[in-house]
């Protein structure tokens, strides 16, 4: 992915940033895991057409992720028993 390296890296960072915005513990962890796996899987791709395809579909997916991360922040539920509370939420 030599030529598109900065473009892919920027996309990758945006995926991680938006995934980590999910309020929901399970969704947050899933999309973080999924983003890492997906970019890692395409790390060694050299075919330009395939890279272009990957970037195109990643852009689409990023839009979905952005919207859903926003929605997730609009509704609040209690934290799970495996989640550490922020300092100001502790009783």
């Amino acid at each position: 992915m030599a030529g598109n390296k900065s473009q892919v890296l920027s996309l990758y960072r945006q995926f991680l940033r938006n995934a980590s915005k999910f309020e929901d513990y399970n969704f947050r962890n899933y999309f973080l895991r999924k983003s890492r796996d997906e970019f890692k899987k395409h790390k060694d791709v050299s075919d330009p057409a395939e890279i272009a395809n990957f970037i195109k579909s990643a852009r689409q997916d990023l839009l979905v992720l952005k919207r859903q991360a926003e929605i997730s922040q609009m509704y609040h539920f209690d934290k799970l028993v495996v989640e550490k509370l922020d300092r100001h939420h502790r009783t």
């Binding site: 539920f77 028993v81 550490k84 509370l85 502790r90």
Partner: peptide, 8 residues
């Protein structure tokens, strides 16, 4: 008390 209460 440092953790949430919602079940897994």
């Amino acid at each position: 008390s440092l953790y949430g209460t919602r079940p897994i």
